[in-house]
Amino acid sequence: METIVFYLLAASIVFTGVAVVAMRNPIHSALALVCNLIGVAAIFASLQAHFLATVQVIVYAGAIMVLVIFVIMLLNIKEEKPARERFLLLGGVVLAGFAFFVALSFVFLHQFQVTPELTDEITGSVANIGRVLFTKYVFPFEAASLLIMAAIVGSIMIAKTKRREVS
């Protein structure tokens, strides 16, 4: 059962991921990414990280992607012309990616020796995450709030139109 669910999810994630890259229309890409992110949330849930799964949906699907779609709609972005040298680039990526894949497979299969098992000691429930977040990681948490503050100010400053001079 677990295995089937995993493979289904993995297939959907890979499929939608490819769709993100392959779709010409950016709004299609964005919707594919939304599906992809919800799939990732499901993966999190299958790894007992319920809190992260929910936050993934709220933050990524609910906030970030809405923003992206918003921008696409506002700017009315049409389909793009493909890059001239895209096959060359694709070749480069495939080559590098293949090397990467081989290298990391080497790690997975040889460094770990035995297949590592998933343990179930502590699950990522809201209570557990909250406890860790506000004790051990309270400083990163506060720093994150500062970061977001800076991002808010920064984005407003970048995106706002300059006020026209009143004559």
Partner: peptide, 8 residues
Amino acid sequence: LFMFAAGV
């Protein structure tokens, strides 16, 4: 691409 290649 360069970044990725360097990472690899």
